[in-house]
Amino acid sequence: MANRNLDAHVKRIGLQNKIATGILTCIVGFVLVLLAAIVVYILVQGAGKALSPGFLTNPSTDDVAPGILYQLFDSFYMLLITLVISVPISLGAAIFLVEYAPDNWITSAASTAIETLSSLPSIVVGMFGSLFFVVTLGWGISIIAGALALTMFNIPILVRTIQQALEDVPRSQHDAALAMGLTRWETTVNVMLPAAMPAIVTGIVISAGRVFGEAAALIFTSGSAAARLNFASTNLASPTNPFNIFRPAETLAVHIWKLKMEPTPGNDEIVWGTAAVLLVCVLLFNVLARVLGKFLARRLTAE
């Protein structure tokens, strides 16, 4: 009797196990199909427009074939400015937290500040930027205001990845350098940073992908007005000079947002085309991050 019960029990839990594994496999299959569907759908919807003549090389004001040339330029330029500001600050902050941070309330307050920044909705960052950078500091709707808003959005992501990268360097390397009589600063610059560099670069490029697609923080800081650029301009203060950081700018993501909010005939095609271009850029950032990380790991760590 007891044996029959045990047999039944074993059979039951065996069946449960099989069913559970089956369900888990279905879930994973579902996620993969979903992912593929999302990417393929956007690319199929947008490919026609994105590859049409002039789309990547015409300004959006072109009457015959409006394109996204200026938005494309503005997106990359904004990203560049953002990285130029956020990478050094994040690097410094991360090094401080890993290497120097005394175990006291100042350090924990600083970590909490970074945590707060990371959980803040990007629209709140944009709102803050629209008051502080645009109005209080008097920079107006400009690339620099947008880039600083993006910097606030990017810093917590970067600090965390750089911190992780530095902490993943074997403790023995760190201790050996200190034992040789190097200062903590020399240890960081000559031992820790080179060892952590592949992971840091990967982290920066991945964060670049996030920044590239961000729009909520930009609508009220760098604006959504289609820029008019003159690539022949040499006057840095001119509003049409592409490199003037005090001119308004519209990135690809903001462009999509604006077109979607002001629907006019023919807009939908441009929206899908822009979305496809944006998606391809972001996917390329991801691939680049992995390739670059592997390449640097081989070059720098002699493995």
Partner: peptide, 11 residues
Amino acid sequence: VGIPSVVYGVL
């Protein structure tokens, strides 16, 4: 994660 918010919106 990398797919931008606006693209999800359009989709």
